[in-house]
């Protein structure tokens, strides 16, 4: 995706970025909260599994020195699932952890977000509020860390 992009690929990139945002928010949502949101979601479309939930491993990677060549750091448990709506859209989920129900629900919301009929409702009731919570929590954590930032005052000592 680093090649100079035509308007077509730009539109495609924007689509991918929008989808990544949805999948990020769903993957990072707490299990219990996602479950509750699914229960409350009105007019659930019919769906079937395109891929039943499956738990497996993804090997995480770092980079030598922080920005160099990759190396394998260690594995992580990940659960994936795919769900197809009756209207045809297929939603996918790859969620950290072993909760298969969570992956199924995440795939369901991904599919519903892809469908014209449900996109707005998923965005307004699921994705946007979850994202807001996640950003607030992250900000809160960083603010607490920032309160531990050191203020050095230089003591005069010859050349300092």
């Amino acid at each position: 995706m680093t090649a100079p992009s035509s308007p077509d690929t730009q539109a495609e990139n924007a689509e991918v970025i929008a989808r990544q945002r949805v999948m990020r928010v769903l993957a990072q949502a707490p299990d219990q909260q996602l479950e509750e949101l699914y229960e409350k979601f009105a007019d659930k479309p019919d769906w079937t599994f395109a891929r039943k939930p499956e738990t497996g491993l993804v090997m995480t990677r770092g980079r030598i020195g922080g920005g160099g060549a990759p190396f394998n750091l260690g594995e992580m448990t990940v659960t994936r699932a795919a769900i197809q709506l009756k209207s045809g859209e297929v939603g996918h989920a790859y969620c950290q952890g072993r909760n298969q129900r969570k992956a199924a629900i995440a795939a369901f919301f991904d599919a519903a977000w892809l469908s014209e009929a449900h996109k707005q409702s998923v965005e307004a009731n699921i994705i946007a509020p979850l994202e807001q919570e996640q950003l607030t929590a992250k900000k809160d954590k960083l603010k607490k860390a920032a309160a531990t930032k050191v203020d050095f005052f230089t003591m005069v000592r010859g050349d300092g």
């Binding site: 497996g56 491993l57 993804v58 090997m59 990677r61 770092g62 394998n72 594995e75």
Partner: peptide
């Protein structure tokens, strides 16, 4: 567990 693959480097 099965191995799905390699993650992108962090």
């Amino acid at each position: 567990l099965p191995r799905f693959g390699y993650a992108e480097p962090i």
